[in-house]
Every structure is written in structure tokens, then in C-alpha cells.
Amino acid sequence: MRIFISGGCKNGKSSRAQELAVQNAGAPLYYIATMKPGDEEDRVRIQRHIDARQGLGFVTIETPMNIETVLTACDPRGSFLLDSTTALLSNEMFAGGAFQRDAAAKMQMGLSAVLRELKNIVVVSDFIYADALFYDEWTEAYRKALAGIDRLCADACDVVLEAVCGNFIQYKGGV
């Protein structure tokens, strides 16, 4: 099953995504790690996620960019957890400190291939679209691009969930 989860930060998306990936059909169990640690705070966050996955049997695949490479690096019959498109897009869009204008189109293409080839995958994103602010050009471009990727995922997935304080609203399908 292809499952897409979004929602505000700290609403329980990653924990639920892990459970769903474990329950999902397919083996082996892959964790697609997307975060490039920038500082100590990131390293602590990454360690917390590694500890949480401990004992669940995930094979970790470091893929901070070029998501389509998981298709050659992994057995496509596996159960995949991609956490998160937010980090992936940020890595693609601001790679090397410069704004990459074609990052969104490139990532859409890679992710489309991944969602077409992999039958069992849980994808996590972040809902960052509901505040009363006008952002700078780059942040706004990032928000717009991530929303496009969210909609692509929601369209391609069998199940779409929004996390609210550890509860999940089903917009599509059922788990």
C-alpha cells in the first residue's frame, strides 16, 4: 500500500509512519533517511529517530538527494519509509548554499518514478501552509514546491492521512 502522511510538526507523523511501514506488505524494511546534519541540534534529532527505529528491523538508506536512486539501491519488493519530502526538497533546492530553480521539477520526476515502481511505501511531509505571513522569494518558492510535491504524493497514494496530535484524519482510503 502507498500511504501519504502530512500535518503540523510534532503531531506524531513519524511514529505512525514507522508503524505503518512495519505493518505494510513487502520485505525487507527500508528507512530512507533524508536529513543532512548541519549542526549539533540536527545530530541530536537524527539520533532520537535512530533510537526510535531501534529493533524494528529497518535497513537505513541514506538518500539526502536524488530520491530515484533508491530504485537501484534497494529491492523494490521491500516496504519503504520515506521521512521526509520536506528535508529532501530542502536539500535539493538549496544544495551547496545556492538556490536551485529546477529542484522542484527534478524531485517531482524522481518521486513520481519511486511512487510508480514501489508498491509499499509510506511518505511523510509537513504542512507549512497556514500562517499569516508573506515570506521572502525563496521560502515562498519552497512552500509552493513542497505543496506541489504533496499533491503529487496524495494523488499517487492509496491512503492520505493528516496528523492532529497523534490522531489521523483520513482524506483518502483506509488503513
Binding site: 505543496a147 504533496d150 499533491r151 494523488d155 493528516e162
Partner: peptide, 13 residues
Amino acid sequence: ADEVYRVFCGLGM
């Protein structure tokens, strides 16, 4: 309103 919808990632509720 007669109908109110919320749209999330392209899906209306």
C-alpha cells in the same frame, strides 16, 4: 454558507 469544504493536498473534505 450551504456547503463548507477544507482542501488538504488537493483532497476536499
